[in-house]
Nucleic acid binder design. Structure first.
Lengths: 234, 234
DNA sequence: CTGCGAATTCTTGTCGACAAATAAAATGCA
DNA sequence: TGCATTTTATTTGTCGACAAGAATTCGCAG
């Protein structure tokens, strides 16, 4: 093991430790750097981040609240598993939230929201051109997250963000297998959605969002439908 | 102040402390025993529950994750405020979730789900007969929570539960003013919803759920619309 | 060699204490 | 008396340590 006890600066500001651990763990979970089911050792993390177990523990509690880690009493916490049996509930939920948030964005967006959305789409198109699946996954999440926030309903936004994060893990599995397919289609659909929002065409935004979601769900279903028969994932 | 340092049994099982504090604080927040904006002192709670600050802190972090308390860095945590300016987003969200979860319940419920739902409704009718608003609020929450669980989509269930909890606080304000009005109507609507679920009539379940939500929203809007002009709530 | 039980190791849950940051009080000055 | 500044006090964030519970290892008998 490498001697990396002091991976981060010696002195941090008071209160910044938890956020650091939280964000880093969260990112490692969502990128599958920490695979589902992997045990999370507190003292291990404490040494790695050069701090006590207390802030690590707080970060884990927050992650558990978002469903990204599962805690068993008196036993090690583990990275939340992806329940493939309940994947259809995820598809239902994200389809509905895509529709609702895009509708609301068409209704309530302001000029600066559109700017932010277009900026994400530009980065997305670039990632497609670069054939960079990891960047596409992350930017796709930001794209829809910004649309959700433009809808200005914190309850819908919160659920959408949670679903988008969960989706990052699922998409990641998808692209690990089909890492050559590059969905130019998605980029075009994004452009159409932006146009509908800008035109404040609620009905069109709804329809495009549903088609966009259906498109993604169809591809993932096709992928898993083929693979699940061969070997059962963890 | 009463000498109640040992409010609970001397020895508790390892790991049960956080749940105790979490559930008790949560209940006090939702019943407005702890009013919105009230500061939450950690050492105070530690003395009251006869334990260290560590488990209290963990409970507070969990409650903050659910949006029931707000934490400011290096400052006391406070009971989450009710943002009356954004009440319409709450109405939109709960209306949609009522519809979605009731639809799904009509599709996916099992025999035991209906039993549980009917049991809640019986208790609700009893609370109406007893003119017990507090019981009505709590049972109404359980009624819709059970329907949501019968829909078997954990994402929708989670958001619905969060909205129902937030709704408890809002309804509580409502009944504190109109504590004589007893909504027999709601009880009838509940019966109709149960019938639609039992008949697996998805379209009817959707329509009834929407009407039920609209009914509640209309009454609360009427209540707040009148009062907000007179005195601005905290 | 194998299955069962006891001892050990390892990890978590909780505690008390200390330091940083903020709030409150006291002091000085105009 | 009013305001700015210093001092005190209160409250949170973090730490190291200890004990309870679970996992593992070890020993022993069959």
């Amino acid at each position: 093991m490498t001697e990396s006890a002091d991976e981060f600066g010696a002195e941090r500001k008071r209160g910044s430790g938890v956020r650091l651990v939280y964000e880093m763990l969260r990112d490692e979970i969502l990128t599958l750097a920490l695979p589902p089911g992997r045990p999370i050792d507190e003292v291990n993390l404490a040494e790695r981040f050069g701090m006590s177990r207390t802030p690590i523990r707080e970060a884990l509690v927050r992650l558990a609240g978002e469903g990204l880690v599962e805690t068993l009493p008196n036993r090690s916490a583990i990275v939340a598993n992806i329940d493939f049996m309940k994947l259809h509930t995820f598809f239902d939920a994200i389809t509905l939230m895509y529709r609702v948030t895009t509708r609301l964005a068409a209704e309530h967006h302001r000029a600066e929201d559109l700017e932010a959305i277009r900026a994400h789409q530009a980065r997305y198109a670039q990632a497609v051109a670069d054939q960079d699946p990891l960047a596409m996954i992350a930017i796709n999440r930001d794209f829809h997250a910004t649309i959700a926030e433009a809808g200005r309903n914190p309850y819908f936004t919160a659920l959408t963000l949670r679903l988008l994060d969960e989706g990052r893990r699922i998409l990641r599995l998808y692209y690990q297998s089909f890492n050559d397919r590059l969905p130019q289609e998605y980029s075009d659909e994004h452009e159409a959605i932006i146009a509908a929002i800008a035109a404040r065409d609620v009905a069109l935004a709804d329809r495009l969002a549903k088609e966009h979601a259906d498109q993604i769900v169809r591809q993932i279903k096709h992928f898993f439908g083929r693979d699940l028969r061969q070997d059962v994932p963890l």
